[in-house]
Simulated assay, not measured.
Amino acid sequence: MSIEVYLTPPDAVAQALSDGIATFNRSAIPDLEPNEDEVRFHVVASNEMGQVVGGLRGTCYWNTLHIELLWLSEDARGSGIGAQLVERAETLAREQGCELALVETTSWQAKPFYEKSGYELMATLEGRPRGHASHYLRKSLVPPSR
Protein backbone atom coordinates (compact mmCIF):
# COMPACT_ATOMS: atom_id res chain seq x y z
CA MET A 1 0.00 0.00 0.00
CA SER A 2 1.28 3.43 -0.94
CA ILE A 3 -0.26 6.76 0.03
CA GLU A 4 0.67 9.76 -2.16
CA VAL A 5 -0.14 13.46 -1.97
CA TYR A 6 -0.48 15.27 -5.32
CA LEU A 7 -0.83 19.00 -5.69
CA THR A 8 -1.44 18.34 -9.39
CA PRO A 9 -2.45 14.71 -9.86
CA PRO A 10 -1.77 12.89 -13.12
CA ASP A 11 -4.84 12.92 -15.38
CA ALA A 12 -5.28 9.16 -14.94
CA VAL A 13 -5.38 9.50 -11.15
CA ALA A 14 -7.90 12.37 -11.23
CA GLN A 15 -10.06 10.42 -13.70
CA ALA A 16 -9.92 7.25 -11.58
CA LEU A 17 -11.19 9.19 -8.54
CA SER A 18 -13.98 10.87 -10.55
CA ASP A 19 -15.03 7.59 -12.13
CA GLY A 20 -14.91 5.80 -8.79
CA ILE A 21 -17.23 8.21 -6.98
CA ALA A 22 -19.57 8.43 -9.99
CA THR A 23 -19.87 4.63 -10.08
CA PHE A 24 -20.49 4.50 -6.34
CA ASN A 25 -23.14 7.23 -6.55
CA ARG A 26 -24.93 5.49 -9.45
CA SER A 27 -24.97 2.23 -7.49
CA ALA A 28 -26.63 4.03 -4.55
CA ILE A 29 -29.02 6.15 -6.64
CA PRO A 30 -29.38 4.74 -10.19
CA ASP A 31 -31.32 7.75 -11.55
CA LEU A 32 -28.92 10.34 -10.11
CA GLU A 33 -27.98 13.06 -12.58
CA PRO A 34 -24.60 12.13 -14.11
CA ASN A 35 -21.60 14.39 -13.55
CA GLU A 36 -21.47 15.07 -17.30
CA ASP A 37 -24.79 16.94 -17.00
CA GLU A 38 -23.22 19.60 -14.77
CA VAL A 39 -23.75 23.08 -16.23
CA ARG A 40 -21.12 25.69 -15.38
CA PHE A 41 -21.92 29.30 -16.21
CA HIS A 42 -21.19 32.98 -15.59
CA VAL A 43 -23.66 35.87 -15.45
CA VAL A 44 -21.79 39.10 -16.17
CA ALA A 45 -22.69 42.80 -15.84
CA SER A 46 -20.82 45.30 -18.00
CA ASN A 47 -21.04 49.08 -18.11
CA GLU A 48 -21.66 51.24 -21.19
CA MET A 49 -17.95 51.07 -22.06
CA GLY A 50 -17.96 47.26 -21.99
CA GLN A 51 -16.01 47.01 -18.73
CA VAL A 52 -17.00 44.18 -16.39
CA VAL A 53 -18.49 45.69 -13.24
CA GLY A 54 -19.70 42.47 -11.66
CA GLY A 55 -20.56 38.87 -12.14
CA LEU A 56 -21.63 35.57 -10.74
CA ARG A 57 -20.09 32.15 -11.32
CA GLY A 58 -22.38 29.20 -10.77
CA THR A 59 -22.91 25.52 -11.37
CA CYS A 60 -26.09 23.52 -11.78
CA TYR A 61 -26.04 19.87 -10.80
CA TRP A 62 -28.05 17.42 -8.74
CA ASN A 63 -31.10 19.68 -9.08
CA THR A 64 -29.18 22.45 -7.27
CA LEU A 65 -27.77 25.84 -8.21
CA HIS A 66 -24.43 26.38 -6.50
CA ILE A 67 -23.47 30.06 -6.45
CA GLU A 68 -19.69 29.82 -6.35
CA LEU A 69 -18.90 33.51 -6.34
CA LEU A 70 -20.54 36.90 -6.75
CA TRP A 71 -18.47 40.04 -7.19
CA LEU A 72 -19.42 43.66 -7.82
CA SER A 73 -17.11 46.61 -8.36
CA GLU A 74 -17.28 49.29 -5.70
CA ASP A 75 -19.30 51.55 -8.03
CA ALA A 76 -21.85 48.82 -8.78
CA ARG A 77 -22.59 47.92 -5.16
CA GLY A 78 -25.98 49.04 -3.87
CA SER A 79 -27.32 49.62 -7.37
CA GLY A 80 -29.45 46.47 -7.69
CA ILE A 81 -27.03 44.82 -10.14
CA GLY A 82 -26.21 42.07 -7.64
CA ALA A 83 -29.89 41.17 -7.28
CA GLN A 84 -30.25 41.10 -11.07
CA LEU A 85 -27.26 38.76 -11.39
CA VAL A 86 -28.69 36.38 -8.80
CA GLU A 87 -32.15 36.50 -10.42
CA ARG A 88 -30.68 35.65 -13.84
CA ALA A 89 -28.71 32.76 -12.33
CA GLU A 90 -31.82 31.46 -10.58
CA THR A 91 -33.82 31.69 -13.82
CA LEU A 92 -31.18 29.69 -15.68
CA ALA A 93 -31.09 27.19 -12.82
CA ARG A 94 -34.86 26.67 -12.97
CA GLU A 95 -34.57 26.13 -16.74
CA GLN A 96 -31.96 23.46 -15.95
CA GLY A 97 -34.38 21.76 -13.53
CA CYS A 98 -32.88 23.06 -10.30
CA GLU A 99 -35.16 23.18 -7.29
CA LEU A 100 -32.69 24.50 -4.73
CA ALA A 101 -29.94 27.13 -4.54
CA LEU A 102 -26.94 27.04 -2.21
CA VAL A 103 -24.35 29.68 -1.42
CA GLU A 104 -21.47 30.11 1.00
CA THR A 105 -20.47 33.61 2.05
CA THR A 106 -18.15 34.88 4.75
CA SER A 107 -18.74 37.25 7.65
CA TRP A 108 -17.30 40.26 5.77
CA GLN A 109 -19.12 39.52 2.51
CA ALA A 110 -22.80 39.29 1.57
CA LYS A 111 -24.90 37.39 4.13
CA PRO A 112 -27.46 40.24 4.52
CA PHE A 113 -27.67 40.57 0.71
CA TYR A 114 -28.51 36.90 0.27
CA GLU A 115 -31.03 36.98 3.13
CA LYS A 116 -32.71 39.99 1.47
CA SER A 117 -32.81 37.88 -1.73
CA GLY A 118 -34.76 35.13 0.05
CA TYR A 119 -31.91 32.87 1.15
CA GLU A 120 -32.13 31.25 4.59
CA LEU A 121 -29.17 30.58 6.84
CA MET A 122 -28.57 26.85 7.32
CA ALA A 123 -25.30 26.90 9.24
CA THR A 124 -22.42 29.06 10.34
CA LEU A 125 -18.90 27.74 10.69
CA GLU A 126 -16.96 29.93 13.12
CA GLY A 127 -13.21 30.28 12.68
CA ARG A 128 -13.27 29.89 8.90
CA PRO A 129 -11.15 31.74 8.06
CA ARG A 130 -9.46 32.33 11.39
CA GLY A 131 -11.14 35.24 13.18
CA HIS A 132 -14.20 35.17 10.91
CA ALA A 133 -17.05 32.86 9.93
CA SER A 134 -18.46 31.14 6.85
CA HIS A 135 -22.23 31.21 6.40
CA TYR A 136 -24.14 28.60 4.37
CA LEU A 137 -27.50 29.64 2.95
CA ARG A 138 -30.20 28.01 0.85
CA LYS A 139 -33.23 29.03 -1.14
CA SER A 140 -36.01 27.02 -2.70
CA LEU A 141 -36.35 27.65 -6.42
CA VAL A 142 -39.74 25.93 -6.54
CA PRO A 143 -42.65 28.37 -6.52
CA PRO A 144 -44.96 27.83 -3.54
CA SER A 145 -48.04 25.83 -4.47
CA ARG A 146 -51.36 27.59 -4.21
Rank of each mutant, 00 (worst) to 15 (best):
G55D: 06
H42I: 01
V53G: 11
T59F: 02
V43K: 06
V52A: 15
S46N: 05
V53D: 14
N47L: 10
P30R: 14
A16Q: 14
M49Q: 15
Q51M: 13
G55V: 11
G58A: 07
F24W: 03
V44M: 05
F41Q: 07
F24H: 09
P34K: 03
R57M: 10
L56E: 09
C60G: 02
Y61G: 03
R57S: 12
D19Q: 14
S18H: 13
V52R: 13
A22S: 13
I21D: 12
Q15C: 09
L56M: 08
I21R: 02
P30V: 11
A16C: 08
E36F: 02
V43C: 10
G50I: 05
A45K: 11
Q51D: 15
E36L: 03
N25E: 05
Y61C: 01
A45P: 08
W62Q: 04
L56C: 03
Q15M: 11
E38N: 01
E38V: 00
Q51F: 12
T59K: 00
A45G: 06
R57H: 06
S18W: 10
M49H: 15
C60E: 04
P30C: 05
R26M: 01
Q51N: 11
S18K: 13
G54Q: 10
G55M: 11
F41L: 12
F24Q: 07
E48W: 01
L56F: 00
W62F: 10
H42A: 14
G58R: 08
G55C: 12
C60R: 01
T23K: 15
M49P: 00
R57I: 13
E38F: 08
D19W: 04
A14K: 07
G50D: 12
V44T: 15
V43W: 00
V39T: 07
T59V: 13
M49A: 14
D37G: 08
S27W: 01
W62S: 06
V53A: 07
Y61N: 09
F41H: 03
F41Y: 08
